[in-house]
Design a protein around this nucleic acid. Structure first.
Lengths: 221, 221
DNA sequence: AACTTTTTTTAGACTAGTCTAAAAATTAGA
DNA sequence: TCTAATTTTTAGACTAGTCTAAAAAAAGTT
């Protein structure tokens, strides 16, 4: 299998995640924003990755991963999520503390290591943020019956199943208000003018802006 | 604490290990050989590391680590040996399979991670090759009563405690002849003309060249 | 359809780490 | 101690990845 640099791997991962909620090609600018870099740097990298047949790229037309590129991206995501699970389950880190470390661990090159770690963890299906962990073959088992909190209906009862964003500050905020995976919630109200969601949980009422509600996935009961 | 690149870390580690069995400064050429690189590349790196006060360096005089440089080197060695222990104890890798992977894992930046891993492993004193694991403070607990097989006396009974070299092929050879940590051995004879050591172990007799005998450390009973 | 704005690419420069080839310093030998 | 051999450094070049500034293409607006 093709050997990639950390930078190349990070680009592939970014393109893959952007593709998840985007139709068609990924634009150079969007990718530059995601990678916290400049469009000119992105153009250079796209040429290189295209050369290696990890993505398709035509001047001014953005890019899209090939099957090979997708496979690489999924392998990195698999490692990232397995390591996060290791850090939380075995080393007792909080779910808000593991992203940075996993960003480094995901680049360790050894399929054998990844697979043994998977086994050691008992073949977990989701990571500490509720995100599904791709299997050896790159397949993601679909997580059933989930919706975003932003799409919930008033009166619904549900269980928190995951978060779409694993940035430290966001997760620390959720910790502070007592929201974790598995927390039961009641949708008390939705404010039509700004999309805010009022939620009863742990005996208190909390208000989530639409931005936050889009980051929380729940399973209606 | 100063942030270093992987390459800088590898140089510090190499200088540290060379210093272990060398009096005085480490020469540019010796370091180049150890790093599988050219002397000119080494000179450039020495200038940089000297700038950062990790080592002392004067043109044509070789180099020696400062206390800061030693501390960094020991931190890397600590991580390397803890990860090797994890791979063998928790993921069931063989002692001959872990060096390469640990070479990557040793560069993961997080003291918190290292210390939690240490705790998770039960604060091991030695790694899978019998090498001592530096503590949080960088101190290495001296491993008592050990000598090299090359220094043993005929008639001695001993236990294999460690190997100085952790290259895959060497360890695979030891596996093949059934030599592991804890294996009891009898020194049957030493050949004066080439320094070979004849050893009885597992009911068989094995002959070790002086080169190999210098790589095996034992505890006389 | 022509003009303006935005996006994207090119051109050229910079850093880190490496290399080769040549120059300089040190060490060894007679 | 003078010369030869060895070691080490310098000089200049290369790759990967990044940047800024400017040019080119695409998209939006009247």
């Amino acid at each position: 299998m093709l050997r990639l640099t950390q930078s190349e791997e990070n680009y592939l991962k970014a393109i893959f995640t952007l593709s998840q909620d985007t139709e068609g090609a990924i634009s150079t600018n969007d990718l530059a924003e995601k990678m916290l870099t400049k469009a000119s740097s992105v153009t250079d990298m796209l040429k290189k990755l295209c050369e290696k047949e990890l993505l398709e790229y035509q001047k001014y037309q953005g890019c899209a991963l090939t099957n090979s590129g997708k496979a690489h991206a999924l392998a990195i995501i698999r490692k990232h999520r397995l390591w996060e699970t290791f850090l939380v389950d075995k080393l007792n880190f909080g779910w808000d503390e593991v992203h940075e470390i996993a960003e480094q661990l995901e680049h360790i090159q050894s399929t054998e290591l990844t697979d043994r770690l998977d086994e050691f963890l008992g073949f977990p299906k989701v990571d500490p943020h509720g995100e599904p962990i791709p299997g050896k073959d790159g397949r993601i088992e679909s997580v059933s019956n989930r919706i975003l909190l932003s799409e919930s209906l008033v009166g619904m009862k549900a269980i928190v199943m995951g978060v779409e964003d694993d940035q430290t500050e966001f997760l620390q905020y959720l910790n502070k208000i007592g929201l974790h995976l598995g927390t039961p919630i009641d949708i008390a109200d939705k404010l039509s003018f700004d999309g805010s969601v009022l939620v009863n949980m742990n005996g208190k009422q909390v208000q989530f802006s639409i931005t936050i509600a889009k980051q929380i996935s729940i399973k209606p009961l």
